[in-house]
Design a binder for these strands. Structure first.
Length: 428
RNA sequence: GGAGGGAUGCGAGAGUGGCCGAAUCGGACGGUCUCGAAAACCGUUGUGGGUGUACGCCCACCGUGGGUUCAAAUCCCACUCCCUCCGCCA
């Protein structure tokens, strides 16, 4: 969440910054009012409590001195004050919990240098690499769902039989390719990122920390019986694994990566891009993530972006980098680039990675801080992350791009070590 | 799933309901001493909120959340986590 001090000292600037993200000024003012109210009540409660404590101490003294009458008298006074205190505390608690609720729903401030814009339409393509529509033959203009069926490597019907639509089932070399892509992505990043295998069911606070709760509860799968959530991305466990910790400045940046399955209800996206692997409820992804100091964030953002595009480039897929404008930024993002890959069969640019800087928004929600080497109180960290590789869309683009005139698919060399010999997938 | 035990400051570890934000030991840091070091001695050693120009002061925090009481680390209830034993299990 945003720093509550912003509401006290820079209310106008905060409203202006959030207006770039289309946040109504009223939401911000509402939170500021709750904060002022809560602080006023808390001060009153502090003063009352201080008096109660002083009186209680006197009760003890009087009793030890054997002055029963005086003790009873003081006890009465203290009891009355205690009742007032309970009432004020109750009101303070209410205001503070309302403030907390309000704060959880206020989006992060966009970075000052973030691209201005009202909607998705205002996003800007920063660069396009390797794209030449003329180079594709008719054999590459076949969508992956047809190729997958033809080669017997993607079985959407059976996936649907098990779990409903948008739950893909991969088969044979198709399944191996999923695993190969994850392995490939992990190996490419192990020079700087520590591999983690986190749980993929997490408690609510983890989703709250990275911003999925409370606003976007409908997008996530919830296991009622145990009150656990299926992670929509490894970002969730990777961010919260350090929740509540005070890190040492020397250990920053903390760089971790994880392969996890990802689960998304796609509640708001019904009917959009639902063919094949374009949008699915369960998929595999390798996520890379950094926890750092503010002055390390810019460089790390570039690094993560370079790693995301590097993997795509190594696989020989054309891609473009899109800068997301303020109006299209997610709740938690201060700045974001998307990496889109070109899939010739569907003739679409598919979002394959989202590389985000969250400033201190997630770290504040998760309470991830570091102790400055120079001394002084702990500072809130920054967090960044990006998909190193999200399987289904890359799978789709690969199969379409590398389809040969005879209908077989020849996978690119960097994947060969991971394919157990299945470097060419032939029609059965 | 069943039965027990536990959770206190950086670590270990005390704590009859009032004088406990917390003994003691250890660690770390600073200082005295020393040519230097060790030893010894002295001091410092948490987080959050509020308030003041400032030394400061006030409040909260002893796993989490409730409750009892004039007063809770201490009593009661619920939850979480850890440990031991039994059962089950990939």
């Amino acid at each position: 969440m945003i720093d509550v001090h912003l509401l006290r000292t820079d209310l106008e600037a905060t409203k202006a910054a959030l207006a770039r993200k289309k946040v109504p000024a009223g939401d911000v003012e509402h939170a500021a009012a709750l904060d002022a109210e809560g602080r006023k009540l808390a001060s009153q409660a502090d003063a009352l409590r201080s008096q109660v404590k002083a009186l209680s101490k006197q009760v003890g003294d009087a009793m030890r001195a054997g002055e029963e009458g005086r003790a009873a008298d003081l006890r009465q006074q203290s009891k009355r004050l205690g009742e007032d205190l309970a009432a004020v505390e109750e009101r303070a608690r209410t205001a503070q919990s309302q403030l907390h609720e309000a704060l959880l729903r206020i989006p992060n401030l966009p970075a000052p240098e973030a691209l201005d814009g009202a909607s998705e339409a205002d996003n800007v393509v920063r660069r396009t690499v390797g794209f030449d529509p003329a180079r594709y033959g008719p054999h590459q203009r076949v969508p992956h769902w047809d190729i997958g069926t033809e080669l017997g490597i993607l079985d959407l019907e059976r996936g649907a039989k098990l779990s409903g639509s948008m739950f893909p089932l991969f088969r044979g070399a198709g399944a191996t390719l999923c695993r190969a892509l994850c392995q490939f992505a992990l190996d490419r990043n192990r020079d700087a990122f520590t591999e983690i295998r986190p749980p993929s069911l997490v408690r609510s606070p983890a989703l709250e920390a990275s911003g999925q709760l409370p606003k976007f509860a409908d997008d996530a799968y919830h296991v009622e019986r145990d009150d656990l959530w299926a992670v929509p991305t490894a970002e969730v466990p990777l961010t919260s694994m350090h929740a509540g910790e005070v890190l040492r400045e020397e250990e920053l940046p903390v760089r971790v990566m994880a392969y996890t399955p990802c689960y998304r209800r796609e509640a708001g996206a019904a009917g959009r891009d639902t063919r094949g692997l374009l949008r699915v409820h369960e998929f595999d992804k390798v996520e890379i993530l950094a926890v750092c100091k503010r002055d390390q964030a810019g460089e790390l953002h570039e690094d993560i972006l370079a790693r995301a595009t590097g993997s795509i480039e190594a696989l020989g897929l054309p891609y473009r980098v899109v800068e997301i404008c303020t109006g299209d930024l997610g709740q938690s993002q201060a700045r974001q680039y998307d990496v889109e890959i070109y899939a010739p069969g569907c003739d679409m640019w598919l979002e394959a990675s989202s590389v985000s800087w969250f400033s201190d928004y997630q770290a504040r929600r998760a309470a991830i801080r570091y102790k400055p080497l120079a001394g002084g109180p702990p500072n809130v960290c920054d967090t960044l992350n990006g998909s190193a590789l999200a399987v289904p869309r890359v799978w789709a683009a690969l199969v379409e791009t590398y389809r040969q005139p005879d209908g077989s698919v020849e996978l690119p060399a960097p994947l060969h070590p991971y394919l157990a010999g299945q470097t060419t997938i032939r029609v059965i």
